[in-house]
Write a protein that binds this DNA or RNA. Structure first.
Length: 813
DNA sequence: ATACGGAGCCTT
DNA sequence: AGGCTCCGTATG
């Protein structure tokens, strides 16, 4: 094996061939990290993906510099998984590598400057910048390129460096530094000589003049005798504020105690009580037996359980079994804020054997989790989709909770965490449970077709009734003048009743801000974002206009900038306005708002969560955020004042999403009492989706969705690939997309290619967007057609003029 | 990512 | 002619 295919952490296609030097041949293995030179003089951390003996013909391979690992850091299963991802989602391995590894594990060389040895500098002939740089180098031996920006203007840096190199005063060097440092924690113990000394009373009497020191000494002595093999953390001694570091130092100076350091995980483990899991109900036992049966037959499971049916119970049971078999578990969640409840329950049972992994961890924390997974120190990993890439050793079970959630689909690189979990599990020969109260239409179809086992938990835990749905015809209410603002009197009365009973209510309105648009009454002018082709939303709380796509903010106009009229109308109702209305209708009650804008501050979510839990909050008004994780016992009513806005979205999944959102939020009501009520205000009470929700017949709802999907040739009956093209110049990306469209039509049947057309948001962040949608048949032909797509893309890439166009290919859009 | 070379444009 | 910026190309 004289050559290696190396993947680099760069957004480049495929892998690169390097020569394996003689002395590394016996040690190098696939899945190891290596240092390799690439391009000019940079050194990168590459990953060995393949070893072979084929000498390259068209170029001379460079040599691997060194190995960073003495054993593969990436298991075989992950290598297979990465190859599958790259192939299926048409993305580069380098892109996956960048996404999958914490950056501290991808060392990169940094360029440094240093003075050449024994030079005498003639300062007379240097300009100001050159003098600064030489002087800086005389003080500090090495300076990296970013540090120079502190004292030389960015545009002059290259010139200055080149000039000093020409004068032979300085030289350039590359240096690789280990970024990860294990955190050390200080511990305390009584000095051994003190323990050997029989005369403890003598020591203590010497401390009589320093009572604080004596107390501290006795506390340490106490802890140590109680548990001689335990560790006493130094910081714990100061926790209650009774002692200061001076007391500690005095004892140490007297050689009575000593301080020592140990490496410590950055992530604090659970140290509370360990509890057993409660027993399953009869229905849950039946469901569990079905899961067992499926797993026995090496089948995966879709666990469709209505809200509060206790899916978690079944998860916990299967986790326990998996652990007992000596295998490990991956528990996937769409977002990290949802981990709270499941974590609390798992921690009580498994304590330190649990690990977390998500995008909010610092880089060093991620490395700790990597190491603990490698050492098999974590038995249950709870995390978001990026935890699919951890180097699991012995994975037995993957649970994908809230499998319908669109957060599993992510960009750069684009892949679906749920579908990928099924593939990853396959490589590990592990089983998968997809769980949801509202499965995605795709998963439901797959399960019903027998591709995985379908298990339906129809009842809430403890036989609590499901909430009752009622549709309010808002048109009728308006006609009979039974309306205040956006609320029918019926909804207000029901809210009042709920409050009178000392219960809580939720109002869902899925639109951020106060008003969607501010429009000039006389000339019709509206505020557009300067970077995007969208109107800016008025946020009253922050008193500014925001673009929800690029985040740009602007102040609220006092008058129309065009015709100077001061008559500006607010159009389109946002959640802030709904909140304001409710607060006015119920001035005596506590009404809170929950949306991304009000939850931005640190711990805002936690604070509100506690307020609701302590029943200080009477009504929560919020966007879709409130459909997740708010499991409280006293919420009895959910109101959706403008439910129609959920349906009329330009997206073939809009109705499915509306159903999922309404059902998820309705699950918050009546969890204990079984008397939950959902009020849906609509102008279209006859709309199939509302009618089906009201009937609460799950099979019928999915049948309706599937019929619609089949009629219009959408997934799961076809497969969609979306090609997005972006460029600063509209005409260029327009022409380019027309061209790619014509190539695609050359290879694919006419009805497979839709577009190109301007994206719904024609310009985003100053980039014009065009898109081509491919509707491909499922099954055997799919691979053939996808190969054609690949061919077309390659043909397009040969046109050099279009190389500057940013092109994203989204498989399974 | 990033360094390099050439095209095109501006300065001396 | 020399220098600067922008863009496209190759990197093993």
């Amino acid at each position: 094996m004289r050559y290696a295919q190396i993947v680099l952490p760069l957004n480049l296609k495929g892998s690169f061939t390097y020569k394996v030097p003689e002395e590394l041949m016996s040690e190098i293995q696939t899945g190891m990290r290596v240092l390799v030179p690439f391009g000019g003089k940079k050194i990168y951390t590459g990953l060995v993906f393949e070893l072979h003996d084929n000498e390259p013909e068209n170029f001379v391979a460079k040599e691997v510099i060194s190995l960073l690992d003495d054993a593969p850091i990436l298991p075989k299963e992950q290598i297979n998984f990465w190859n599958w991802l790259a192939d299926y989602y048409l993305c580069g391995l380098g892109e996956i590598y960048r996404f999958a590894f914490p950056s501290s594990l991808k060392l990169e060389s940094e360029t440094y400057l240093k003075l050449r040895p024994n030079v005498t500098v003639d300062f007379e002939n240097l300009d100001v910048n050159e003098m600064y740089l030489i002087q800086a180098l005389e003080v500090r031996q090495l300076i990296n390129l970013t540090d120079i920006e502190a004292f030389i203007q960015k545009k002059d840096i290259i010139k200055t460096i080149n000039s000093l190199i020409d004068l032979q005063y300085i030289e350039i060097d590359e240096k690789i530094t280990e970024k990860y440092k294990a955190k050390e924690v200080a511990y305390v113990r009584i000095n051994q000589s003190v323990l050997n000394n029989q005369n403890l009373t003598e020591i203590l009497s010497k401390l009589n003049k320093a009572p604080k020191q004596k107390d501290l000494f006795l506390i340490i002595l106490d802890k140590q005798t109680e548990d001689p093999s335990g560790f006493i953390k130094k910081s714990d001694l100061f926790a209650d504020g009774n002692f200061g570091s001076s007391h500690f130092k005095s004892l140490a100076d007297k050689n009575l105690i000593e301080e020592y350091y140990m490496q410590k995980d950055r992530i604090e483990g659970y140290e509370g009580e360990i509890e057993e899991i409660e027993e399953l109900s009869e229905l849950q036992k039946i469901a569990k037996a079905e899961v067992d049966e499926a797993f026995e037959a090496k089948e995966n499971v879709l666990l469709h359980g209505v809200t509060s049916s206790g899916k978690t119970h079944i998860y916990l049971d299967k986790i326990e079994e998996c652990i007992n078999e000596g295998k490990n578990v991956l528990f996937l969640l769409p977002e990290i804020s949802l981990t709270k409840q499941i974590t609390q329950r798992l921690e009580k049972k498994y304590g330190r054997q649990i690990g977390f992994y998500h995008q909010k961890l610092t880089d060093f924390e991620r490395v700790e989790v990597w190491r603990r997974i490698k050492q098999n120190d974590i038995r249950i990993l709870i995390g978001t989709r990026n935890s699919l890439f951890l180097p699991y050793q012995n994975l037995g079970l993957i649970i994908v909770d809230e499998e319908h959630d669109s957060a599993y689909k992510q960009f750069t690189p684009y892949f679906n965490g749920k579908d990928s979990a099924l593939v990853l599990a396959n490589f590990y020969d592990a089983r998968v449970i997809l769980g949801s109260a509202t499965p995605s239409v795709e998963s439901y179809y797959r399960a019903r077709k027998g591709k995985m086992k379908y298990i339906f938990l129809t009842e809430r835990f403890g036989n609590v009734n499901l909430p009752e749905f009622e549709l309010i015809n808002f048109k009728e209410a308006q006609d009979s003048k039974k309306v205040t603002g956006n609320f029918s009197l019926q909804l207000i009365e029901e809210l009042q009743r709920t409050l009178d009973d000392k219960n809580q209510a939720i109002i869902l309105h899925n639109r951020r801000g106060y008003a969607n648009v501010i429009e000039c009454e006389s000339c019709g002018y509206v505020n557009y974002c300067s970077n995007c082709d969208v109107v800016m939303t008025y946020h009253k709380a922050a008193n500014e206009m925001k673009c929800h796509y690029c985040g740009q903010r602007a102040s609220k106009p006092k008058a129309c900038p065009k015709c100077h009229s001061e008559k500006l109308n607010e159009k389109g109702v946002g959640v802030e306005q709904i909140h304001e209305e409710i607060s006015k209708i119920f001035p005596e009650n506590e009404v809170d708002r929950m949306d991304v804008d009000s939850m931005r501050k640190k711990f805002a979510y936690e604070k509100l969560y506690e307020k609701i839990e302590d029943r200080e909050t009477d009504i929560v008004v919020g966007t879709q955020m409130i459909s997740k994780g708010l499991d409280f016992d006293h919420i009895e009513l959910v109101g959706i004042p403008k439910a129609d806005s959920l349906l009329y979205v330009q997206d073939f999944r809009a109705e499915e999403r509306a159903y999922q959102l309404i059902t998820q939020v309705s699950g918050r009501a009546g969890r204990v009492s079984g008397k939950g009520k959902i009020l849906i205000q609509t102008y279209n009470p006859d709309h199939s989706v509302f009618q089906l929700i009201k009937m609460n017949n799950t099979a019928k709802i999915y049948k309706y969705f599937l019929t619609e999907r089949q009629k219009f040739h959408y997934p799961p009956f076809t497969k969609l690939i979306m090609i997005e093209m972006k460029h600063r110049r509209e005409d260029k990306v327009d022409r380019a997309s027309q061209f790619l469209g014509s190539i695609l039509r050359k290879y694919l049947p006419e009805d497979c290619v839709l577009g190109p057309e301007r994206a719904q948001i024609a310009r985003l962040n100053n980039l014009y967007q065009f898109q081509i949608m491919l509707k491909l048949p499922r099954g055997k032909n799919y691979e053939k057609f996808k190969a054609m797509v690949l061919l077309s893309l390659k043909e397009f890439d040969e046109i050099t003029a279009y190389q500057s166009i940013k092109k994203d290919v989204l498989v399974d859009f």
